[in-house]
Design a protein around this nucleic acid. Structure first.
Length: 733
DNA sequence: AGCACGCCGACT
DNA sequence: GTCGGCGTGCTC
């Protein structure tokens, strides 16, 4: 039998055929000789390619069983075909290599001649010796396979939170001084980490686990988001048993509340639920929120977790021990057994699309898996994705009706303003603080200022490796390139004219923080930088926002993703109009979705937008336009010029060391693609990046598979080096 | 990714 | 003469 395999860790866009005497199951792992070395291969399917060469034999079966569901193997193959990404890397996401740390090799006897049933490998060797192993393997008396279950990952819990169960009542149930100390510490501080308790109370981890057993406390990774509002929404969602449901409108809390009862129904049937979110920090908040309503195991899964934490969730997934898993895009690959429902929150977010190899759209994978398994898929966001609006007739459509939302929007012309913060903004913040409510300030750029300019000669400091202005980070006194990571010590002398006249220009989060601290010295001002915090620490900031411990919260789009925004009385948007001039066909749509999310998430906040382009009607209309009208109009425009969703758009980027050779190569490539509808080639919007020169072109196609295979043929001729392909990317740069 | 093959410098 | 630098290219 001939099988097509995806080869682990190989960044190539092919399946490779090998033969085997045995019948193999799609999804199982095997060892093969790949170009002179041993590699892990994933069985994808029985080969349907014509064989025109001598094939190598599969050397060994690793698992002898597939840990992946057959439908998931098929879904991964679809994603490989559709995104032209290396199948080996896609399968590696579903089957991460570190889980082998928890595997055990088992020796199974195949004949009553060696009648021990099965034994762990080390025991076998101890009992019978290495020679016997080899001997009996050769004779076919025994076989080897990997099993999971014996070794168990034990993630550290030092950063976990400890919360009291049953509030003050817990105090009556303590059995000794230590327990009393722990409980009273927690009652005065609301929550603490295991680490903190060990430090300040002197309790041990073991003791805390024991107290958890006794039901006094709970050890958890999640803080209880939005503690007050414990009622489920009245209108419960009941998705059809299969198919796609779009749930739009309102806030993430309300949307989750209306699917939670359905989630419970699924877990009651002993099936599990996968919830996808765009950001790492959001996994903890959503998990904590779900935990508040459902008495089930809720786990998080994302790429920034430790290996052992990820391994734990993965092993629980294949072992059918998960109930609810909340994760980022990588969680779309989790091989959950007995999956009963997939929910995707904030589905309009770009972060579901991975731009690096393996390129994939996690929502497309999720939908494919759900469809092939015949289970419901619920797509949530305050405004839907354009593709979903486009195919709305095929989907179940639910819109949570709006409450009476204030639509108090002011657009402030800052062309004449001397300060980064307009007078009107400062006044509004003042008013909001005096009302005892919180302000959220959305700033697109991090650092102190996005440019450094010379007063004398107007020279703008550029990154030596990229066509990107250097930004100034005051806290580190450094100039940084946000594209390639270049850092240099800040200087005041202009490298162009020598004058000591460099000054920072533009709006960054650090600068906004500094100015606000100047204006409001007594206020509690927090700058939320997700990179500077552990992912789970972000939930602490949002809990503080809820519990009235923050007056002003400054940050980039992460500040929009929180829970408990009822207390926010003002939201200011500082530098978003710059986006309008970006040369990207999706910019307006993304702006629309962001602004509408702001309006529906911050239920009772006034909205203040500072702009340099007050004449642009877009910012003014974006809050009042009817959503369906906007989408219809957008679709009409796209149909006229034939853009997605009316075709598939393939972006091809070439990186090269020398501008001239790159230009020739990209042109050669485009000429070879004769017959395709191609825009370009042109220089990439960021022409020079990390020392490489980049060109790109777009292919618009009605037959994606044919186009990709044609492109593949061209690459075969001219070499694969330096090419990047994205299918229907949510942004072009 | 990894490994082989190939084409140049240094050196037991 | 060979050993080995890593640039280029291929892997069923």
């Amino acid at each position: 039998m001939v099988y097509d395999l995806a080869i682990s860790k190989v960044p190539l866009r092919y399946l490779y055929s090998y033969k085997s005497q045995e019948k193999l199951e799609p999804g199982e792992r095997v060892i093969v000789d790949f170009h002179g070395r041993k590699a892990i291969g994933y069985v994808v399917k029985v080969s349907d390619k014509p064989v025109n060469r001598e094939l190598k034999e599969i050397l060994q079966r690793l698992d002898r069983v597939s840990y992946l569901d057959q439908s998931d193997v098929e879904a991964l193959e679809r994603i490989f075909e559709r995104f032209f990404s290396p199948p080996g890397l896609l399968f590696d996401l579903a089957f991460p290599s570190f889980i082998d740390d928890y595997a055990e090799t088992i020796v199974e006897s195949l004949t009553p001649l060696v009648g021990f049933g099965s034994l762990p490998l080390d025991e076998f060797v101890q009992k019978y010796g290495r020679d016997a192993l080899k001997n009996q393997l050769d004779k076919g008396y025994i076989q080897l396979k990997k099993c999971f279950g014996k070794k168990v990952p034990k993630p550290r819990i030092s950063k976990w939170y400890v919360v009291v169960r049953n509030g003050l009542k817990a105090l009556m149930r303590v059995r000794d001084e230590i327990e009393y100390d722990v409980v009273s510490f927690l009652l005065t501080n609301n929550h603490a980490t295991v680490e903190q308790l060990i430090e300040s109370v002197g309790v041990s981890t073991k003791r805390l686990k024991q107290m958890q057993q006794e039901g006094l406390i709970e050890l958890t990774q999640f803080l209880p988001m939005n503690a007050e509002n414990l009622e489920l929404a009245e209108a419960q969602l009941e998705p059809p048993p299969r198919g796609v449901t779009v749930l739009s409108g309102s806030t993430i809390e309300e949307r989750l509340r209306s699917v939670i009862a359905f989630m419970k129904k699924i877990t009651d049937e002993n099936k599990s639920v996968l919830v996808l979110v765009p950001f790492t920090s959001l996994t903890y908040m959503v998990a904590g929120f779900i935990k508040k309503f459902l008495n089930v195991t809720v786990q998080v899964y994302h790429a920034r977790m430790s290996r052992s934490q990820r391994a734990k969730v993965w092993l629980d997934s294949v072992g059918d021990r998960t109930q609810v898993v909340v994760g980022t895009r990588v969680a779309a690959f989790l091989p959950m057994k007995n999956l009963g429902l997939i929910v995707a929150e904030e589905s309009d977010d770009d972060a579901y699309y991975q731009f690096e190899d393996p390129v994939y759209d996690a929502l497309e994978l999720a939908e494919t898996r759900a469809r092939l398994r015949g289970i419901p898929f619920v797509i949530c966001s305050s405004e839907p994705r354009l593709v979903d609006f486009h195919r709305r007739e095929q989907l179940k459509w639910l819109r949570i009706p709006k409450e009476n939302r204030s639509s108090d929007v002011s657009i402030v012309d800052v062309r004449q303003s001397r300060s980064i913060l307009s007078e009107e903004l400062v006044k509004s913040v003042q008013k909001t603080i005096s009302e005892g409510r919180a302000t959220v300030i959305l700033v697109r750029r991090k650092g102190f200022a996005p440019y450094v300019v010379c007063f004398a000669c107007n020279h703008v400091l550029m990154c030596p490796n990229c066509d990107v202005a250097l930004s100034f980070h005051k806290s580190q006194n450094a100039f940084k390139c946000h594209q390639c990571g270049y850092v240099q010590k800040a200087q005041s002398e202009c490298p162009n004219c020598g004058a000591k006249a460099l000054y920072p220009k533009g709006v960054g989060t650090e600068r906004v923080e500094r100015l606000l601290k100047y204006h409001f010295p007594g206020a509690r001002i927090v700058r939320l930088e997700s990179e500077e915090l552990e992912p789970f620490e972000v939930q602490e900031q949002f809990l503080k926002l809820q519990t009235n411990e923050i007056d002003v919260l400054i940050g980039s789009r992460i500040v929009l993703q929180g829970f408990g925004t009822d207390r926010v009385g003002l939201i200011c948007i500082l530098d978003y109009d710059g986006l309008l001039s970006q040369p990207d066909y999706n910019t307006r749509l993304r702006m629309f979705q962001t602004m509408r999310k702001i309006r529906s998430n911050f239920t009772s906040a006034r909205i203040l937008i500072q702009t340099f382009q007050p004449q642009d009607g877009f910012l003014r209309d974006v809050f009042t336009v009817n959503s369906e009208d906007f989408y219809s109009e957008e679709l009409k425009k796209r149909k006229e010029v034939n853009y997605p969703p009316f075709c598939d758009l393939v972006q091809v980027v070439l990186e090269s060391d020398l501008p001239q050779t790159g230009w020739e190569l990209v042109n050669y490539c485009v000429r070879s693609l004769e017959g395709e509808t191609i825009l370009g080639p042109v220089e990439h919007p960021i022409f020079k990046l990390a020392g490489k020169y980049r060109y790109h072109f777009l292919i618009k196609t009605k037959d994606l598979q044919k186009t990709l295979s044609k492109f593949n043929d061209v690459l075969m001729k001219i070499g694969r080096m330096g090419w990047r392909v994205s299918v229907n990317p949510p942004k072009l740069w």
